[in-house]
Design a binder for these strands. Sequence first.
DNA 1: AATATCTGAATGAATACACATTCATTTTTC
DNA 2: GAAAAATGAATGTGTATTCATTCAGATATT
Lengths: 215, 215
Amino acid sequence: MKVADKHGRIIQAAIKVFARNGFFNSRIAEIAKEANVADGTIYLYFNNKYDILITIFEEEMGKIIASVKQELATTDNPCEKLEIFAFQHLSLVEKNKDLAEIIQVELRQSSKFMKEYRNRKFAEYLQIISNIVKEGQEKGLFRKDVMPGIFKRAFFGALDEMSRFWVLSPKKKYGVKTAAKQISHFFLNGILEQPCPTKTKTKKRKIKRTKSARK
Amino acid sequence: MKVADKHGRIIQAAIKVFARNGFFNSRIAEIAKEANVADGTIYLYFNNKYDILITIFEEEMGKIIASVKQELATTDNPCEKLEIFAFQHLSLVEKNKDLAEIIQVELRQSSKFMKEYRNRKFAEYLQIISNIVKEGQEKGLFRKDVMPGIFKRAFFGALDEMSRFWVLSPKKKYGVKTAAKQISHFFLNGILEQPCPTKTKTKKRKIKRTKSARK
DNA sequence: AATATCTGAATGAATACACATTCATTTTTC
DNA sequence: GAAAAATGAATGTGTATTCATTCAGATATT
């Protein structure tokens, strides 16, 4: 009907449909309809249903990583980098809600193969964060006892959970900018106004495991 | 063969099987086999396959929330509470890997109904965190500009991502205790050793958006 | 206490159906 | 008018669910 680029039309349709129903509850027929294409046409461009999902991931994830890396190159201040990362991540999610939902939700399960494949791509993404941390440590800005391997997961996880909130509930209570600022600020400066009351490492080892409360 | 409690046997079997294959790729027959029960028997205890998933969630999530709340009651120091929460959360995940995987992975998708239901339960869980924050703010320990609604998600997200790491890769590079300490420490104290180079709010607005690098 | 009758939990083979995939036919392109 | 692209009805498969049947134990009958 239109011009062409069936491939692209199918991908876009699939993103929409998968996001709406979930992968397993999506019908090929529905994707075909959404793309204004016959059922069979899809099989001229993809091997099977699962192949569509993989392709979505492959084609889109690369763009994201590249785009984030590019933005980060605008500064060499690790603190700023963290905030930029947060902002970029959240912005991308906001701009591509359906895609974000698929990556977050649908790709979690799926076969062993996909899990491993996905993990490789994600490892690359997470490494951007740990590299920032290492850079900050070398420059004497960040504490040396911070473990980059844990930090990257914590930081990403914080952003990811914030995204989920947006993906699932359309009404955003907080803007992207606010969220990015808050989150990077938590991680950089912590939330303490003043030192906490002594960590009670000395006494008070009174765990008192209640043995009652059975069943 | 054994005694009985078919209900419990089926639930435990389903947790194992769902975790192994994912909900949609799990066969009722496989669950039946794992539970040493005939296929049909499952339908004496559950309405359908989906009902098993819901029951898993309902029966197990309550226990978790209760258990965390109980542990928190052992102190009234908000800082400690955060660390306890982190430790409890991660410990529970470690002790119930299969269950954790199901809650993390399988329940994300699933029907609208489940999504909403799940969210209600999770809201309760997340609120534990925001309550700690508010308490800390009232006591003058935490900064007032920290938004509890963002913090709870960030903190939970950090833990959740850390868990995923454990759930998916069996070899733990970091122990529960280390991870809990690090994460709560990030959030309480931040990762800064010394103030970052001026946030460039004044001069140096040299963002220099590279217009090259096209495609 | 031996035998007959009942009960409902458990079984698993048979059913029913949804849907991914195929392919003979039609339409478009050059 | 040949080749390529697209179609969508028909096919085949996989599996959730059903239900007629079994059978172990309880209860009643002699």
